[in-house]
């Protein structure tokens, strides 16, 4: 039981670390590239407009999909490592 408990704590720590990384990317593409940094990216043209506009209407959504699948995949690995694969 005690071993299970320390195992659970380590598992949770690894999970939180992974979530933090994913959330940084999530915020960077949406709040960053698409909104706050759009003026900085205005020099990069994309089909009649600029990169910030593309991130706001396409890029961020594509990145979100990538983040969720990456997280699910990493968590499956973590589950295996901790012997939690069902």
């Amino acid at each position: 039981m005690a071993e299970d408990k320390s195992n659970a704590a380590a598992y949770w720590k690894a999970n939180v670390r992974l979530i933090t990384g994913c959330l940084i990317l999530w915020a960077f593409v949406s709040y960053g590239c698409a909104i706050l940094f759009r003026p900085l990216l205005s020099g990069i043209p994309v089909g009649g407009t600029d990169l910030g506009f593309w991130f706001a209407q396409q890029g961020s959504i594509l990145t979100f999909i990538g983040i969720i699948f990456f997280y699910a995949w990493k968590m499956n690995q973590l589950d295996k490592k901790f012997g939690l694969g069902e």
């Binding site: 994913c22 959330l23 999530w26 506009f53 706001a56 209407q57 961020s60 959504i61 979100f64 969720i68």
Partner: peptide, 20 residues
């Protein structure tokens, strides 16, 4: 562009939903 908020808001929420 100003209404891109709907696009990002209604998809980005799934990232938090999946992880949090």
């Amino acid at each position: 562009y100003a209404n891109s908020t709907f696009l990002m808001g209604w998809t980005g929420g799934y990232v938090i939903l999946a992880m949090l």
